[in-house]
Simulated scan of single mutants.
Amino acid sequence: MSLIILASLVFLLMPIFLLLYIRSYNRHKKNHFLEKLNMQQKFESEMLQTRVEVQDQTMQSIATELHDNVGQLLSLTTLTLNSVNLNDAEKAKKKIDNSLSLVNKSIKELRELAKLLHGEQLVENGIGHAIHQEINWLNKTGAYELKINNQLLDVQVTSPDKDLIILRLLQEIINNIIKHAQAKHIQIDSYLEKNALHLRVRDNGVGFDPNEIKVKKSGMGLNSIYKRIEMINGKLALNSAPGEGTSISIEIPYP
């Protein structure tokens, strides 16, 4: 008799347990979907912020170049032309030739600026070309002795979203060097190895104690760098010491 009662209870309770299981499964499925949607929205928001920051950095570079280089060339052209004495044909010819040379230099610089205006187009041409362009602007400052090993120029694979973030990471690292490092020598290495993109930047600047930075993940823009690397499942190795410069190595699954 007890077996019949037990069997009846099991038979009656099974639908209830099944219903509870289905409800729990659907709830977990919904939560998982909402979590994925939230992560996707955060990623898209971060990508938008990254695009804006890359554009801001680009515009700052253009403004600096217009003021410090193109503006100077055009000012020299104006001064040279204003000093032309048409009564002295030989000297006048030399000054006009010099002016033409300055104008041609200005045109060349403006063409380079036109390329920089298409920041995302640079990324579309590959991260190697974007890194190359960024290094060119750093080199134009004349403030650093650069040692460059960019093995990404001929890489055929691309990952536009990751490329944009990698470009912004490089910009942030370079900005940190300019603002804080007081360095004279900078070495930049970039290459692909075992389905991973490697970017390493070293400087011989004043350095700092990284222990507190690693714990807090803050200071000198490093919080943003850590966050972006985590977003694309990358790894960061930071080595620095007071008076011994800084080395930052980034490894990102690629593409």
Rank of each mutant, 00 (worst) to 15 (best):
M1E: 04
S8K: 10
L9I: 00
I16H: 14
Y21A: 11
S24Q: 14
Y25V: 07
Y25T: 09
H28M: 04
N31A: 03
H32N: 06
N38L: 02
N38R: 03
M39N: 06
Q40R: 15
L48P: 02
Q49L: 08
V52I: 12
V54Q: 07
Q55E: 03
Q57E: 07
T58Q: 08
M59Q: 14
Q60D: 10
I62P: 08
E65W: 12
V70C: 02
L74E: 15
L76T: 10
T77F: 14
T78D: 11
L79K: 15
L81V: 14
A89Q: 09
A92S: 10
K94N: 05
D97K: 01
S99T: 05
L100G: 03
S101L: 07
L102G: 12
K105H: 11
S106W: 15
R111P: 04
K115R: 05
L116T: 04
E120D: 05
L122P: 05
L122V: 01
V123D: 10
V123Y: 01
E124R: 08
A130P: 00
E134P: 02
L138K: 06
N139F: 02
N139H: 08
Y144N: 12
K147C: 03
K147V: 10
K147Q: 06
K147M: 04
L153R: 13
Q156R: 13
V157P: 11
V157I: 13
D161P: 03
L170F: 13
N175W: 00
N175S: 12
I178H: 09
A183I: 12
Q187L: 06
I188C: 00
D189W: 00
S190E: 09
Y191W: 08
L192T: 08
H198R: 00
V201M: 00
G207R: 03
E212I: 15
K214A: 14
V215S: 12
K216W: 07
S218R: 11
G219E: 11
G219C: 06
G221R: 07
G221N: 08
G221T: 08
G221I: 10
S224R: 03
I225W: 15
Y226M: 02
K227W: 10
N233C: 03
L238V: 15
P242G: 10
G245R: 07
T246M: 15
I250K: 05
I252S: 14
